[in-house]
Amino acid sequence: MNPQTLSALALWGATTLYAIAMVAYSVRLAREADAKVAARARVSVGAASGDDVPAAEGGALPRSAAKALGIARSATLVGVILHGVGVAARGIEAGHVPWSTMYEYTISGSFVAVVLFLLIQRRRDVTFLGAGVTGLATVALGLALTVLYEAATGLQPALQSFWLVIHVSIATICAGIFGVAFLVSVLQLLRDSRDKASRTVSGRGFRFLDAVPAAPTLEALAFRLNAVGFVLWTFTVMAGAIWAEHAWGRYWGWDPKEIWSFVIWVVYASYLHARTTQGWAGRRSAYLAIAGFVALILNFTVVNFVFQGLHTYAGSGS
């Protein structure tokens, strides 16, 4: 089997496993929410203290929940191994680091997101993120394999630099980190709305929100991720400027990619300021973090396909 077939097979396998993991994580989340609601009902029947009940105490979870978690975890683990094999095989096939085209960037970025999730999972329980992260990875891999796929070719002279290894790899890691942080911020907003009895998220479809941590806990997690992401993004922009100075003879030329990298940086900077400012902390700063990730995705999609700039080789096609 040549690396090309191996890469494609492994990535399709990972996509399938992530899809299974997403379903299993969702089932787990739903069961946990049910158990919590039931526990809260018992408590309020007994004593009138409606405060937050610790997550499903004393084996209140049904056996199916444990089974779902087991399936989810093993599917994610095998999935991420296949994903890694797929990315590595692509690198071997192409003969260079696997992040020089949109296809390669997407498979590597989603790999970082899943690995990051598993790393956080080792230190604290973030099972509630599982459905989102595996879902995001399924979509990213599916799109990459069907829409963005491009056969590997040699690197053109403009990309033959060790800055490709540094600049783009850090940018890929940033995409993974900001992606997970984005999920946390979305959950934070939804959970906050549900706690405030907002009508849009009070329905049964949003019951899973009872199983995610309280909004301030989510905010704290999102901040930690975004802080790491922001420092790395600053580094990405800096490394890009140094590379641009080497390759194009100017460190900053307001190329569309540079403009959007700047926009992303400024939006996340405003997020970091907002979360320590009265009246902006909480919901508003979460909106800014989400806007930052949206800008990141725009930078990766619209800027590559629509705008003309020096970064065109990152795009699909010739």
Partner: peptide
């Protein structure tokens, strides 16, 4: 914060 957001928005037309 408002100035930062204006800076981000203002940069977009250039692309």
């Amino acid at each position: 914060i408002i100035l930062l957001l204006l800076l981000a928005l203002g940069a977009i037309p250039g692309s």
